[in-house]
Design a binder for these strands. Structure first.
Lengths: 247, 247
DNA sequence: TACATGATTTGTACGGTGTACAGAGAACCG
DNA sequence: CGGTTCTCTGTACACCGTACAAATCATGTA
């Protein structure tokens, strides 16, 4: 509606688009969270630093837009498919978010402190609420549960990228686990017997397996609440043909 | 043991202690996460900036020490009391951590990216593992559960401090809720009906009540797993492969 | 007592950051 | 055409973390 009467603005044509700037920022972020300075971005797209401020009011706006763009890349296919079991849908969303965001560790570091309340984030929230309603949660519980899931997903990501200080893209999962394994077993075992004993598991903290384990415990907690009260959500055990969580 | 043979080092007496530096940093952090620059800290304690580097190798070390100190302030009374019900102990820890850390929002922002693997953090982990063992979890599950809880507690804190961009100490909880309430209800309700309907609950996201609600769902999830015999756990039997008709 | 030693503190300096501000140039309008 | 309005450039400022060398000082030893 406000699109139709669009006329070219007064000045010269812009040399860039917002997306080119975000592209540059994103690729720079793979060299560390601090690598995406305004100057570096500008150099990357071939303008002087201050030209960036014609596209975004300040750097925070660049970060916000970047986060929105990454969120926009998540695949809604399974997540939004109300014919699928709801647990599978949550897992699909969680895995998608992790995949899309942890592919750019620097961006995750930056998004801490971002408000994440753009339209795409809102859409994701809305869909998640829908999903939880499908699962039988009343609106209040659905709202609380959506925040709980958000905290879990986001918290996992933050801790995961904090774990590696490397600028480069995250090393392979197996390698990171081995590194942590070493670090843990180097700790004095007499002072922390349980930690030492759990070293193997703890070394594997940062892994898709642990991520899903935690997510499933949360879903169990939400399910338990539904099962024992509220509506009697009839029958249909999802039983997702997934392999048992035991490794 | 290595303390006994301690002799004064060669040079002049140090003008400060590490703790004074941390005090200064902590009080500066109440004016925003960026307010605790090396220069500002130095000015606060009355030395030239570079003097700080005699006490800490770099700024990251200051942050690490600060985080350790905050963690050291948590009260272990209930948390470590094995006579108490284990859920109460977890809640006590969670509330203590939130209280101690969210009292300094700037510090929370800084601790993102900190490794949090100092001796005090280790002690907390060890105690948490002990607690979960008391709850009946086998060592592997206890390790996973401890990380899950850590993610939840830490993620909640990060999102909470990100929610207010204010430098000052966090406003009262009621006030923050009211502000969010307003912001939410300003969103177009036609595009996000569920979000709009859940606005009241969502405005209250950031609250002790929501914090405990989520924590209890997680504990429920862990408990369910213990209750039904941990090996064979299929999944919480989740229902709803067929969503109800459109809302 | 005198001196060498070594840690502490200072001063200066470098390269980096985000961004405010003034001006040059290009595209549109009347 | 002149005027308006936008984009991009150049310069500049205040701040950041910290490397480096010189100055200061309390000690251990001669």
């Amino acid at each position: 509606m406000s699109e139709s009467g669009r006329r070219r603005p007064r000045g010269p044509r812009r040399a860039l688009t917002e997306n080119e700037i975000l592209d540059a920022a994103l690729s720079l972020l793979d060299h560390g969270p601090n690598a995406a300075s305004v100057r570096a971005i500008a150099a990357r797209v071939g303008v002087v630093p201050n030209a960036i401020y014609t596209y975004f009011p300040d750097k925070a706006a660049v970060v916000d837009a970047l986060v929105e763009r990454l969120l926009g890349e998540v695949d809604h296919d399974v997540f939004a498919d109300r014919a699928q079991p709801w647990r599978d849908r949550v897992e699909a969303l969680a895995l998608e978010l992790r995949a899309k965001l942890s592919a750019h560790p620097g961006a995750v570091s930056l998004m801490v402190g971002s408000r994440m309340d753009g339209p795409i984030a809102q859409t994701l929230t809305e869909r998640l609420l829908q999903l939880l309603a499908d699962a039988g949660l009343d609106p209040t519980d659905a709202a609380r549960a959506s925040y709980l899931l958000f905290v879990y997903i986001f918290g996992s990501l933050v801790l995961e990228v904090a774990d590696v200080q490397q600028p480069a893209p995250l090393p392979a999962e197996a390698e990171r686990i081995a590194t942590r394994q070493l670090a843990f077993s180097a700790r004095p075992p007499d002072h922390f017997p349980l930690s030492a004993a759990a070293a193997a598991t703890m070394a594997g903290y940062i892994s898709t397996e642990q991520y899903l384990w935690g997510l499933r415990r949360i879903l169990d907690g939400l399910t338990a609440r539904v099962a024992m009260g509220r509506k009697s959500v009839g029958s249909g055990c999802a039983a997702s043909s997934r392999p048992g969580p035991q490794a």
